[in-house]
Design a protein around this nucleic acid. Structure first.
Lengths: 132, 132
DNA sequence: TATCTGTACTATAGAACATAGTACGGTTAG
DNA sequence: CTAACCGTACTATGTTCTATAGTACAGATA
């Protein structure tokens, strides 16, 4: 379902958190669906149960899952989560725009460039794009 | 010139790097202007010379300053740096937009919201803004 | 009852971060 | 030349975060 990059500088538990956030927000996991058990997921990802537990605690703290002692961890409803995620994205972009303003850069032109790059970056067309 | 938040989870050397990046890009420090010495800045920021040195090494690695043994560290020309920074901003925003696309969110509406929020966030007007 | 589940500990090891101290070589003002 | 500054390169120490390992306990369920 998700995969871990052990070469990544980001901690394993954080990769697990982000992986499941994405799965839940994207609707791959449905409401009240059961998460893998701490021990099973640890085996599957070749990591330690404690690391998985730490990730699940963080997911619960942020409202993505809820846990029932003795039964397992379950997915929360994604509706509110998606709205929350949208607000985070707006917030992140506006922070970057404020940074741009401080450097006297044209925010609107910046957004046009970013929008085009995001559309080019998704596919592999090279319409006006530069090779990286 | 810059200030350090010791409560911040970010490492001190990273805060120094970011602080000087901002000063250089904003043109507060001019080309070939001399940076504070490693030892003096350490005293000024109530930190250790080694921590400042680590920050300066990073700034040099990223092309913001150059060092002359026995004389000091000096600011590089900001023109190319500003263009590089602009590309980074475009890249950061486009990554967020790709994330939004994956969640079937309306990118253009997202950008309009972010643009408005960035303009509201700069000043303290409350035109359509929510109290945090 | 046996086996699964989450949860809570302790202990250990490694990496990153920060501090402290020392040392060496280049630059510059006196 | 000398003294005082500069960058640079080490070693050593302590703290925190991350990850692993092992143990233990309580709830749920077949």
């Amino acid at each position: 379902m998700i995969c871990i990059n052990f070469q990544d500088s980001r901690p394993i538990y954080e990769q697990i958190v982000d992986g499941y956030k994405h799965l839940i927000l994207a609707g791959v996991l449905e409401q009240d669906e059961r998460m893998p058990s701490v021990r099973n997921l640890a085996v599957e990802l070749s990591t330690n149960p404690n690391t998985v537990q730490k990730a699940f605690m963080e997911l619960e703290r942020e409202g993505f899952i809820y846990s029932v002692r003795g039964r397992g961890n379950f997915v929360n409803s994604s509706g509110q989560l998606l709205e929350k995620k949208r607000e985070e994205l707006v917030d992140d972009i506006s922070k970057l725009l404020i940074e741009a303003e401080e450097l006297s850069l044209d925010s609107e032109q910046l957004l046009r460039d970013a929008l085009q790059k995001s559309k080019v970056g998704c596919c592999d067309s090279d319409v006006g794009g530069k090779m990286q």
